[in-house]
Design a protein around this nucleic acid. Structure first.
Lengths: 375, 375
DNA sequence: ATGAAAGCGCTAACAA
DNA sequence: TTGTTAGCGCTTTCAT
């Protein structure tokens, strides 16, 4: 191990026969960057390249009074031990977009860095001195608010805490869900159950409402017990809800799982009940993260995670650039979803009394009015 | 946004009525830390707590000439878009262990930070000035060597590049595999196929050799075409290899997948072929990352990822602490695996001519000698 | 077009 | 036991 001193801007200055100030100007392209003769610039650049120079990030951060780091706070995961695909994707694309603008993304995982509660996440976040923070579906408004009040640029992704006035980037589930239902109905399905979350967040409600409204548009009433809601998007929950709707009479011919975790659970329950997908049951999911990996590969509503991440970085860096300027109205961006058809959807096997069967049953219906929240 | 100046050690010094040096000594507990009167210490501590002080990481790093950051370089993933469970787990536990010792783990993902090739990963790594680097199964010896030669503490995990003399933390697959085979054989299986990697890395070879040696110990010969090897641990590969062994006559009654990705693929192929697990085919996997999530939950060999990560951090920080000391022999730690039995294994359905059937067939056998690499 | 100088927040010698 | 001092490597006025 030879712990050789890393090359500094002084080394470059010597090699190029200029001052450190000039090196800095050349390398950072100070405004107009027509402050240095082409010849000097070249000398500096070649020296830097020759010596493999890279500026010391701590020194830069200290002097500039900004870290050039953007903290990414992933959603907290429900008992998964293999990370969260959505968090991974967001981080991936955010990191790339950030790098293009000279920033780095550091992941600050509440489950790693704030195993306790209360201030812990906030304190840890502050201690890292990020220039900005991207929250993916924060569980509490408190941390978000305090970060913002500390003068750090903030954006909330996916399921924002709307009580805090930050920039948000969210998704409009409707396009994908409408296409999914149209697809199912087009195939001939009339009995479609919904496996969803009973969490009150608008992101959950809107999925459900879009589901119901679309079926209503097709003139298809949905019995109340076709709407199965549970507290957490876990595999076990998904399996339990599936079993529940399987008990309906008549049972559904298709399942809409409002999250991929639920689709995984649904597949478990369906397997256990020896119900083949898609032959005896069509399955559609929302998320499209595990969907392609399951068997059969699941038709799913995809979210534009890459665009979300890229917009988030643009949003943060934008806030940083016009930092001095007056507090502009925070941006609220909404991105569309789309349907990816795979092999989990097919004509319903049971064609008997398709339309009539439901309407003669006496159970309560969730009508279009109810789905719109009117009654 | 009120960009208030964050509190500095000067603020604490003022508040406690001491010098900044004293604040530093109190907070960093310089050796023996009996350099400061209890009373002063208390004043400093309370002031720091009251003002919510946390030291500026960049200033600390600059002054100390070390970043207190350990870079984690995850394995490169094969076409997965949802991250890698093993990488996630290693990062998780490493981060926690590092935090306990005052270090932070930063993930430096080759697929994010080095989309090009050649020096890119190395340069990026250096530019971050980590005190140490943990490589998980590095694909090339070059980066590892150069990092080590730059005087940065290094440890390689899981599948090290043995051409470079670094500390390594690896796994002994044998305990888990032996138990897996014993379990299968105990259930009555005699025809067990192996789905593995043809990569020459010792980690792959040793799994295969252990598999063969254990069967040999049971006196069970394995036809050569029961050993199906492919280049990459992907779902598709796993499905393809499964189809291949399904074509053997007689077909196997059990499958050993040398990686969870292969098990996922195997399940796809088995589903497609309408072969039920475990009724018509038992499946065991190596990795235990997705295993519990699949259907049915797969009996699997687990690796002690948490211990690996914790040992890795201890190894790195150990190197850092005795940095001045002579280059001690790098440590090579080997941790054991164990079997987790789930629901994918059962008595073989087909009991007919179990023992006799194989031996009367004329095909080439992979004997114990061959498995030892002797013939 | 370039250089000199100051200082970001912190810590480690050395003095006192 | 405590304070003084001198930078770590960099960027940014301000002179020249």
């Amino acid at each position: 191990m030879d712990k050789r001193r890393s090359v500094t801007s002084t080394d470059i200055a010597h090699a190029a026969g200029v001052s450190r100030a000039t090196v800095s100007v050349v390398l950072n392209g100070t405004r107009g960057n027509i402050r240095v003769s082409d010849e000097t610039r070249q000398r500096v650049l070649t020296a830097a390249a020759a010596l493999n120079y890279s500026p010391h990030p701590a020194a830069q951060a200290l002097r500039r009074q900004r870290s050039s780091e953007i903290a990414f706070v992933p959603r907290t995961m429900h008992k998964t031990e293999f990370g969260h695909p959505i968090a991974y994707q967001l981080n991936l694309h955010a990191s790339r977009a950030a790098a293009r603008r000279g920033y780095r993304v550091i992941e600050v995982n509440p489950e790693i860095n704030a195993t306790g509660d209360g201030d812990e996440l906030f304190a840890f976040l502050l201690s890292r001195r990020p220039d900005g923070v991207m929250f993916d579906s924060p569980t509490t408004a408190d941390d978000v608010r305090r970060i913002m009040e500390s003068g750090i640029a903030v954006v909330q992704l996916m399921r924002p805490q709307l009580a805090v006035e930050t920039a948000t980037i969210t998704v409009d589930a409707s396009r994908g869900i409408i296409d999914a239902i149209d697809h199912l109905v087009g195939l001939g399905h009339r009995r479609i159950a919904y496996l969803g979350s009973d969490d009150a967040h608008i992101a959950n409600r809107s999925r459900r409402e879009c589901f119901l409204a679309t079926l209503a548009r097709h003139g298809i009433p949905i019995p109340a017990d076709y709407i199965a809601l549970g507290p957490e998007y876990t595999l076990e929950q998904g399996a339990a809800l599936t079993q529940r709707v399987l008990g309906c009479s008549p049972p559904p011919t298709a399942l809409f799982a409002a999250a991929d975790n639920f689709a995984v659970g649904a597949l478990h329950a369906l397997h256990a009940a020896r119900i083949r997908v898609p032959d005896a049951m069509s399955v559609v999911s929302y998320d499209d993260v595990y969907a392609a990996m399951l068997y059969p590969p699941i038709t799913s509503v995809s979210q534009p995670l890459r665009e979300i991440a890229e917009c988030a970085i643009e949003c943060i860096t934008g806030q940083l650039e016009r930092a001095a300027g007056a507090a502009t109205e925070p941006v609220h961006l909404v991105l569309p979803t789309h349907l990816t058809v795979r092999q989990s959807t097919q004509l319903p096997r049971d064609e008997t009394g398709e339309g009539a069967a439901e309407s003669e049953r006496g159970r309560m219906m969730v009508s279009i009015a109810a789905s719109g929240g009117e009654r």
